[in-house]
Amino acid sequence: MSSAIVARSPGPCAWLTLIRCEAKMVVRDTAGLVVPIGLPLLILVMNAAAAGEQVVVNGRTALDVHVLPLVFTVVPATIGVVNMPSFVAYYRRAGILRRLSVTPASPVMVLIAQAVVSLIQTLIGIGAAFAVALLVFDANLPVRPAAAIGAALLATAAMYATGMIVAATAPTPNAAVAIGLVAFFALGALGGLFGGREALPEPLAVLGERLPFGATVECVQAAWAGSAIDPVHLVSLAATIVLGGVISAVFFRWD
């Protein structure tokens, strides 16, 4: 009787369907969409004029090397640290991960689909801010484009990893939003979101530079200015990915 039963893993069609469904969930969560797209644009518009057109280094202006890195860092940080964990915590709380575990699909699939949609959302958020910066405020391209793209990818992975710690430890969806927001603002404040880190006490400034937000800003800044990326920032981001992966793997609950 059992010989006729074949274990089939869901194929590409199932993946596409899941990604489409996650995309609909994200798009229909209007409030969650406003921050990652709107906040970076707001920061850009408010700082672009003041940053002026004075060249700072390598033909790049203050807008290029001080404002844009911050704007680009905010996008994956809000999506990865606040939005994604709240979806994951909700899926767990609602029993959706458990429900999927009794189908041929694995609940891991829904997490990966959510990560894919978050990545698309990150690209849209960065793309929108970059387009406005280029077209309206005459921003310049990075001196080292490949380094900028690499830094952005590494930073996105680090933000996801941070978010997965939030998702793994938050008991409820509300807690996930609260922890995510606190984490985002803490990382942001130490990483230069509310003004330069120079204003912070020395130990906090050093800490902020090594946390994912500050490290991302530093990497993107270096790519734009054409200077060498300080290895300490790459190590910080890589360590965040490893640490986040390990912590979430240990503490993550499916129901």
Partner: peptide, 18 residues
């Protein structure tokens, strides 16, 4: 294999609300 042939309705399992 069992997941292919076993259908389950869980107590208190919600679905994607939106």
């Amino acid at each position: 294999k069992v997941r292919q042939v076993l259908g389950i309705q869980l107590q208190q399992a919600s679905l994607h609300h939106a």
